[in-house]
């Protein structure tokens, strides 16, 4: 299987503080990869680097064998890297349908047309409904996004990512701040997306049960460094991971330990 995403010595520092240090990541197409690590390990920063919100101080990012290190956020999104955010990030005063349609419009390369075309509109409408069904948002077409329940906003974000025709989905804690009752639904949506086989998913998640259940590969990030990656069952038994994830020990002692 080819790698859809690779990073080479990816590093970023804010001032003197190295947040990500020489991360070499290889992500296989069609897999679900979970990134775990304690708070402040640099998980979200890594996502920001991959999607282009911040630029690296060193190293390169290759997406489908193309060097995307210097590309801006919108250009990476057009290539097929899509992300969801830790805090839900949607257009609050547009309806669910309009939110999704904006994503479809972008993926259908309909960037700058300044006159409305009715044929395109109805086609987009149908397409949007299909994505809504996939993400279990039926019947919410004309609800304003800000009036959705929190879990539904998460689903809307996922629907928008699918509508963007992203190949690589970066999901930053899709269950953060969601009530326990709503989690199974989100889980189901992610499983559905995974089953499709068209998408590669990178997940940041704290809920270990969910991570173990979903992931093909587990990546552990600690103090901005890639501590371990591989089969979830093996990784979780790794002594270094256990100490790092349970916290308490200093980095030096882990390296030597």
């Amino acid at each position: 299987m080819e790698n859809i995403l690779e990073t080479k010595d990816l590093s970023v520092s804010f001032g003197e503080h190295d947040v990500i240090k020489d991360v070499n990541l290889e992500i296989e197409r069609g897999k679900l990869i979970s990134i775990i690590g304690p708070n402040g390990a640099g998980k979200t920063t890594l996502f920001n680097l991959l999607s282009g919100q911040i630029t690296s101080t060193k190293g390169e990012i290759y997406f489908k064998n193309e060097n995307v290190t210097k590309l801006s956020v919108p250009l990476r999104a057009r290539r097929g890297i899509g992300r969801s955010f830790q805090l839900t990030n949607i257009f609050p005063e547009l309806t669910v349908l309009e939110n999704i349609r904006l994503a479809i419009q972008s993926s259908s390369k309909d960037y700058y047309s300044i006159f409305p075309r009715l044929s395109a509109l109805s086609r987009q409408q149908d397409e949007a409904k299909a994505y809504m069904k996939k993400c279990m948002l039926n019947g919410k077409e004309h609800v304003l996004a800000q009036d959705l329940a929190h879990g539904e906003k998460r689903k809307l974000e996922l629907a928008m990512l699918l509508a963007l025709k992203t190949e690589l989905l970066l999901l930053d804690e899709p269950t953060a701040g969601i009530s326990i009752e709503e989690i199974p639904a989100i889980l189901e949506v992610i499983e559905n997306i995974k089953k499709d086989g068209m998408y590669t998913i990178v997940l940041i998640e704290h809920k270990m049960e969910m991570v173990m259940h979903l992931s093909d590969i587990l990546v552990v990030l600690f103090n901005g460094e890639l501590l371990a990656s591989g089969n979830p069952q093996e990784i979780i038994k790794d002594q270094r991971v256990q100490t790092a994830y349970l916290g308490g020990l200093h980095r030096e002692s882990i390296k030597t330990g």
Binding site: S51, S72, V73, P74, L75, A77, R78, G82, R83, F85, N89, I90, F91, P92, E93, L94, L102, A103, S106, S107, Y111, M160, L164
Partner: peptide
Amino acid sequence: KAISQNEYRAEALGYK
């Protein structure tokens, strides 16, 4: 309209 509401998101959707 999308940019006026959430410019950050609009960029993440691929709009410059």
